[in-house]
C-alpha cells in the first residue's frame, strides 16, 4: 500500500467510528459541543501519532512477551503529557472533558493501531496510519458533536445557526441524545453504502 493510501484508509474505508465502532466511550461522552469534539479528536490524534512513532522505532527492540505492557506505558506517557498540557494551557476545555482525557489511554483505537500497525511497519508508514486514523476519528467526533450541539442548543462552535424560532431539543446534549444521534448517523451511512453497492451491481 502506498503512503497516501495508508493515510486515506482511516478517513473512510476503515473509519474508526463509523466503520469499526472503536473508541466509543469518548465519542459518545464528549460530543456535547463541536468544540469539545474537536479538542478530543486533536488530543487523541496527538497520542496516536506520538505513540505510533515511538512504537515503530522500538518495534525490533521490544520482546514479544512484554509487548502489551510496553505499549501501555508509552501510550499512558503521552496521554499524561496531553492531560497536563491541556490543564495548563486550555483549562476550560480540560475541565469539560474531565476524566475522558486520561481515559484516552484505554481507547481501543490507540492500542489497536499500535498492535496491528506500528509494531509491524516502518516509522514513516506508521505516521501516515496514525494521521489517517486520527483525522478520521476527529472528523467523526466533530460531525456528531455539531449535530448534537445544533439540535440541542441551536448553535455550532458557539455560533447561533438556528434562530429563536427553533425549539431546541435539549435531549440531544443529554446522554440519550448521544446514543440516538450516533445510531441514526450510522444507519444513514449504512444506507448510503447499500445504495452505492446496489448501483455498482446494477451497472455490472
Amino acid at each position: 500500500m502506498s503512503l497516501l493510501n495508508i493515510f486515506k484508509n482511516g478517513l473512510w474505508n476503515e473509519h474508526p467510528i463509523f466503520r469499526l465502532l472503536l473508541g466509543m466511550c469518548p465519542v459518545l461522552a464528549v460530543t456535547t459541543t463541536a468544540e469539545n469534539g474537536l479538542a478530543m479528536g486533536l488530543a487523541t490524534t496527538f497520542v496516536l501519532v506520538s505513540s505510533e512513532i515511538v512504537i515503530s522505532l522500538l518495534r525490533n527492540v521490544i520482546p514479544a512477551r512484554v509487548r502489551i505492557p510496553s505499549f501501555i506505558v508509552v501510550i499512558a506517557t503521552f496521554v499524561t503529557i496531553v492531560d497536563y498540557t491541556m490543564m495548563a494551557f486550555a483549562p476550560a476545555i480540560a475541565e469539560s472533558l474531565s476524566i475522558f482525557i486520561p481515559l484516552i489511554v484505554v481507547n481501543c483505537l490507540i492500542l489497536g493501531r499500535n498492535e496491528a500497525f506500528a509494531s509491524r511497519n516502518t516509522t514513516l508508514r506508521s505516521i501516515m496510519d496514525a494521521l489517517g486514523m486520527g483525522v478520521g476519528f476527529t472528523w467523526g467526533l466533530v460531525i456528531l458533536a455539531a449535530v448534537r450541539e445544533l439540535l440541542g442548543t441551536g448553535e455550532v462552535f458557539g455560533f447561533t445557526i438556528l434562530g429563536e424560532w427553533f425549539p431546541t431539543w435539549n435531549v440531544m446534549v443529554l446522554p440519550p441524545g448521544a446514543f440516538i444521534s450516533l445510531g441514526v448517523i450510522l444507519a444513514l451511512l449504512n444506507q448510503l453504502i447499500i445504495w452505492r453497492e446496489q448501483r455498482i451491481q446494477g451497472v455490472k
Binding site: 522500538l58 520482546p63 506505558v73 508509552v74 506517557t77
Partner: peptide, 10 residues
C-alpha cells in the same frame, strides 16, 4: 531490561 528502561524514560 526493556520494560524497566521504558518505564524509567516515561
Amino acid at each position: 531490561l526493556v520494560l524497566t528502561s521504558i518505564a524509567l524514560m516515561s
